[in-house]
Computed example of a mutant assay.
Amino acid sequence: MPKPKSDLDRYQFAGAGAARSAGRFDLSKVSPGDKPFSSGDKQRDRAAVELLADELDGLQNLLYADGRFKLLVILQGMDASGKDGTLRGVFGRMSALGVKTIGWKAPNETERAHDFLWRIHQHVPARGDVMVFNRSHYEDVLVPGVNGQISPAQTRQRYAHINDFERLLTETGTVVCKFMLHISKDEQRERLQERLDDPTKRWKFAAGDLDVRRQWDAYQAAYADMISATGTSWAPWTIVPADSKTHRNLMIATLLKRTLEGMGLRYPPDDPALAGLRVK
């Protein structure tokens, strides 16, 4: 059974929490190998993910029918942390009727001619929809920040803009769930090597992945800064230990189920004209 919600304090950040140290979120306090939602039995956990995937499909249909809310799910993490796997394992059974996803890459020339959130705003969910971001607007701070393309002052400014942007979304009916998939350096090495060794996965590997890996410590610090700056009461971060693929999916699916159940979703009232109608 999942742990009580209070046991999630160390994995969630909304401006304060057990992992906060001297005003800054300490990512090193969260082990990528943790399994706070595990039953202790891998097969049982896999079965739980399957059941949750079916339940999420039903809840997504109810969200679409209700039509009052929107759900934005952000999956952010290092290379090989499991963003694609989460899409398959958690969202793969949801109806295409109201679930959309987009994978964010480096901005093109047209996008760079606008403010960095311009392209993002065009893809936020409509009423009744679930939108899943595979990477997100946070890439436009993390990558240029680590590579020295924007200054620390510009980094702080962009995070302030993101907080305002996400508050705008939540105040207009969007529930924002932000998951940082937290993988260890050793596990990433194994997964990247697996991509190289498997011809069916080699297409996912890019030479630039190794350049980013060499910046591991800088990115870990940047992620801690990101969580510290943008874990808000309206859009908190959840750090998902991601060394275990099964547990990663179990944790995210469980929290999404809680989120959808907490919205008070309901089907619209029946049309009185349909009462007693018979299909011939």
Rank of each mutant, 00 (worst) to 15 (best):
S81P: 01
K185P: 11
S38W: 12
S6I: 14
I102L: 10
H123N: 14
L63K: 01
D7Q: 14
F133N: 04
L169N: 06
N147S: 11
Q149Y: 06
L56A: 09
V176R: 05
E194M: 14
G276H: 06
T155N: 03
Y219P: 02
H121L: 12
E261K: 12
R189Q: 15
G145N: 09
G128R: 05
E261V: 09
V132S: 08
K42I: 14
L192V: 09
Y267D: 14
S95E: 04
R266T: 12
Y64T: 06
D164M: 13
D115N: 15
Q122S: 13
I120W: 00
F205E: 03
G173H: 05
G15Y: 05
G264P: 02
R127E: 08
K185C: 12
K245L: 08
P4G: 12
L277W: 15
S151N: 01
E139R: 07
K245N: 10
G262F: 02
I183P: 04
R156M: 12
L59E: 04
S244Q: 10
D115T: 14
L256C: 03
E190F: 08
A242G: 00
L87H: 00
D270W: 12
A106Y: 09
I239L: 13
T155V: 14
L256H: 01
Q154K: 13
L87W: 02
D164G: 11
F13L: 05
L62C: 08
L87S: 01
K178S: 10
D198C: 09
A224T: 05
N108T: 07
Q154V: 15
A218Y: 00
W237D: 03
S151G: 06
Y267I: 10
V49C: 06
A235N: 10
L142E: 01
A229L: 13
P125K: 05
D164N: 14
V73T: 04
R202S: 13
R119Y: 06
